[in-house]
Structures are given as structure tokens and as C-alpha cells.
Amino acid sequence: MNKDEYQKLVKKLSPKEPKLRNAIIAFLVGGFVGFIGEVIVNILMESFGLARVDSYAWLAFILILFATFMTAVGKFDNWVQKAKCGLIIPTTGFAHSVQSAALDYKRDGLITGIGANVFKLAGSVILYGIVSAFILIVIKVVLYG
């Protein structure tokens, strides 16, 4: 059996992802997160008299608190398994990746475990976010003043 045949066999035998179902679930869960966010923002603006921009900041704070807590309790992993991008693309995915990396490496100690691995997954978001924002600002400043 050569490599190509082996690849074909692997493809045939590996279980197929239910793509349509995944997509619909991601749409519904992601939309639900957006909807809940809007509800929270409106509650903050009406009940606490916050400005819209501040409410968005508080919303990010609340989502992160919720996601890290649920991950620590052990519920969020199952939800992410089911909802996939519905929970990965919102800020909850960022919080989930930090919290789960920290928990996974807890047994390696405070420094070489938690400290060294806490941004293992979320680090790429921070790195590429900052680098791309840096480059784009430089372009903006150089080209448009």
C-alpha cells in the first residue's frame, strides 16, 4: 500500500464531520452570544447609566468572567466541543483558551507550568493583533499623515 492509497483509506474510515449541522449550531450559538451581549449592554446603559462605550468594556469583562469560571468548573469544554466556532470566535474563546491552558499545566508548577503556558493558545491572538495593528498604524501615519 503506498502513501496515496493509505491517505484514501484514512479519509474513507475517519468519521465525517456533520458540516451543515456544525454551521447551523455555530450560527445559533454565536448569534445568541451577540444577542445576550446586546441585552447586557442595554441593561447596563439603562440601569446603571453607563455610556455605550463603557458598557461594551463591561460586557467584555462579564463575558470573560463567565467563560473563565465555566471553564474552571469544567462545563465550558463540553460546550465548545458542541458549539465550536459559536463560542470560539466571541471573546469567550479567548478566555477559554487561557483558562484551559492554565488548568492543564497547573501540575507543572507555578512558574514552569502556569506562568510559562498561560498564553500558549491565546498568545497568537495577542501577538498577531498587536503586530498587525502596529503595521497598519504605521501605514496610516506614513501615507495619510
Binding site: 445559533l28 451577540g34 444577542f35 466571541p90 497568537s124
Partner: peptide
């Protein structure tokens, strides 16, 4: 809010299912 967040997640899910990219690639790209 529902429709926009939903559609972005839907697009990302379709990309995730049909390519070899990992969730890390997708979140960084987004």
C-alpha cells in the same frame, strides 16, 4: 446583533470544517 455575530461564527465554522486550519489560525485571522 444576533444575525451579525451568528454569520461571522457561521463563516468561521465553514472555514474550520473545510480547511486544515486550526481554531488558533481562525481566531488570529479574525
Amino acid at each position: 446583533a444576533f444575525i451579525f455575530a451568528g454569520i461571522v461564527c457561521l463563516i468561521c465554522q465553514v472555514v474550520l470544517d473545510n480547511t486544515t486550519l486550526t481554531p488558533g489560525h481562525i481566531t488570529s485571522s479574525v
